[in-house]
Nucleic acid binder design. Structure first.
Lengths: 180, 180
DNA sequence: GGCAGCATGTAATTCGTTACATGATTCA
DNA sequence: TGAATCATGTAACGAATTACATGCTGCC
């Protein structure tokens, strides 16, 4: 049973051969926007994937005390990834600390709640500006079938999410009265 | 160090005294929309909260082999909750399986991707209808300071989220060409 | 009599984070 | 000489899921 992290790794390798280190870098940016893992988790998962014959590697020298391992998808790995892609995702429970705080916010002083949401709003607006700049670097949506379609479509999801979040923060602020 | 789950439990108890069983029920609906836990996790956490003197309980009889325990917030518990509410939430990594699949979707057959997104769209539209009905039962936003403000504000977040998701699904479908 | 709901817990396992441990290459 | 980057791994801990385990009350 390959975990979702396993498929995240396969999805990275589908775009080109990588070392564990490279995969960890991809898991920060851009994959980190929707899936993350530290390098320790990745090395462990790579061993499981190899046992399952979904990836293989070639060693190359340096740098460092051990040889580096350049991983690539096997035919079985690509087939497994392809099948997983269109299988319905299992329901993940939402865990959102800000929303939980909001649920209990009626207990708190409106002025400190205002500060909390103003900070969150600034954060979402900053990310939004960032994503908008990234979007501007595209010349329209890449065609489906191009790996860049994946990048663009996920960016588009992030844009929508940040807009929704910013708007919600603004709404909460609007409910807090006119305290300044 | 109280965990976020601990504060979720305190947030439920702030609305009234509950047994562990009742808390577990609340963690399915309505708290489950933004935080969840099974009863086994809750019973364990309640013991930690009691050790930290943030909650206390009174036993009452039946049903069942043991007496039931009705928990309530202590003064220290309420203070801790109040302080936590306005402290900035720690950044949670997003883990979104559907977006991950989208990132790898360029590998797959457009027709099966279409089915995946059509199903997801239906799911979000159903939830949206559900939330819209819940919103209609309110007579406008409750005032801040009322516990119902928490319920309404989180519902409002859910509405925005489902709308954003549905719209994104529609956009992905629009990019898949006219295959039927 | 049987089933749903109330009610509490423990155990096993997996997933994820953080810290520990090592060490060469490249650039300033 | 020193810092950043490349590169791989193990260990310890905490968070979360699932399964196991028990048994009364109230309703049909």
């Amino acid at each position: 049973m390959t975990s979702t992290l396993g498929f995240a790794i396969l999805a990275v390798l589908a775009r080109g051969d990588r070392t564990g280190y490279d995969i960890a870098a991809a898991m920060r940016r851009p994959v980190g926007y929707f899936w993350t893992a530290g390098h320790s988790q990745i090395h462990g998962e790579l061993q499981k994937l190899r046992t399952a014959c979904l990836v293989e590697f070639e060693t190359a020298h340096g740098p460092g005390p051990q040889d580096k391992k350049v991983y690539r998808l096997t035919a079985a790995g690509e087939a497994a990834l392809r099948e997983w892609v269109t299988a319905p995702p299992r329901e993940r429970v939402e865990r959102d600390e800000l929303v939980l705080k909001t649920y209990a916010s009626w207990l708190a002083d409106p002025e400190t709640v205002r500060r909390l949401f103003a900070d969150q709003l600034a954060l979402h607006e900053a990310r939004l500006a960032d994503y908008e700049q990234a979007e501007a670097s595209y010349d329209g949506p890449p065609p489906f079938g191009d790996p860049r379609f994946g990048n663009y479509a996920t960016l588009r999801c992030g844009l929508g999410y940040e807009r929704h979040r910013a708007e919600w923060c603004r709404w909460v602020l609007s409910q807090l009265g006119d305290g300044g």
